[in-house]
Amino acid sequence: MRDGHLEARPVRLAAVVLAGGQARRFGGRDKPMVAVGGQPMVGRVLTAAAEAGMAPRVVVGPPREGLPAGVVVVQEEPPGGGPVAAVAAGLAALDAEAGVAARRAGDLAALNAEAGVVALRAGDLAALDPEAAVAARQASDLAASDAEAGVVGLPVLDAEVGVGLPVLNAEAGVGLPVLDAEVEVVALLAGDLPWLSADAIERLVGALGESDGAVFVDESGRRQVLCGVWRARALREAVRRLASVQGASMRALTEAMNVVEVRWEGGRPPYFDCDTEEDLRRVIDDE
């Protein structure tokens, strides 16, 4: 809370990068791994997503060496099943990541009873030791303002006893806070966008509002659906509506969704994708 007003809760963001396909017009090369400015194109996309605060980041495609640490790699089923199959695989990977986080929070919460005993002991000791009481209050203040610190606990040392005792979430007193692991907004990004930037992604997130999605449109007004951000819940519902994800088009996936169209002004378009060798030469010449 600041100046008597509740601060807006941060929206949890993630990125799903589609990096499969056959690249038939690219001489059979692994197009997302072709370097531009010394970095693979898919690496540039992942960097932009990270700088825009997106985590986790999922790449849908075959296993590759040289991807940034912490990136989750999954394969659509069947391999080569098309962009919607890749989107479904990416969403499933995000759900799996959220499940891991929830289980970790659950494991911590399962220690509730023991933590409560420790908290009481810490309180008893602090009451007997003014120095420990000060340290406890300072640690509690930090734990209350820092969610991560509240999860791991902050040690309070009792000088007389010489034993470290964890201070738990100050508001709850006992137990550990449960993390909100569910991703709310997902960026769907092609793996061959060499001019994508964090600024472009942030512009899309800012335009999203209450809509299901926000995408860039090119000069002709065509939606660039693999350079957009989407409500995760709306995406999941759209996937469920399809009879089959295999071979389905992105248009079929998104046609019933409420989408904001964003025009890019100010330089190289972030939605420009390298479909051909000629596109790549254009990008390299502009570097």
Rank of each mutant, 00 (worst) to 15 (best):
A88T: 13
M257R: 04
V152L: 08
E278Y: 01
A238D: 15
V260P: 07
A181L: 05
A113K: 07
V217G: 14
E219Y: 01
L189P: 10
V262W: 03
G267Q: 01
A133C: 08
G209V: 02
S220M: 05
E184I: 04
R203C: 09
T276F: 00
L188C: 10
D158C: 13
A88I: 06
V151C: 07
A98R: 07
A135Q: 12
G4F: 02
R240K: 10
S220A: 14
L120N: 10
M33L: 09
V118L: 10
A172I: 03
R263Q: 13
Q75S: 11
V16Q: 07
G66C: 01
A149N: 12
L111Q: 15
L188D: 12
R103P: 06
D146C: 07
V11K: 01
P78M: 00
L179E: 11
V117Q: 14
F26R: 06
G80W: 00
D129M: 04
W195F: 11
G82E: 09
R203L: 09
V134R: 14
T47C: 12
V245K: 11
L46P: 09
G228C: 08
E265H: 07
M250S: 12
A147P: 15
A139I: 04
H5Q: 10
G4R: 08
A101P: 00
V117Y: 00
V163M: 09
S211I: 01
L208K: 05
P269A: 10
L94H: 05
F272I: 02
M1N: 11
G82Q: 06
L188I: 09
V245F: 05
E265L: 03
A50G: 12
L179G: 08
T254D: 15
C227R: 05
E202M: 05
Q246T: 09
E148A: 12
E77Q: 15
R222G: 08
A136V: 14
G38I: 00
V73F: 01
V87Y: 07
P78G: 06
A69R: 07
G228I: 02
N169L: 04
D124A: 14
V45G: 10
V74E: 11
M41V: 11
L235D: 14
I201F: 01
V186S: 09
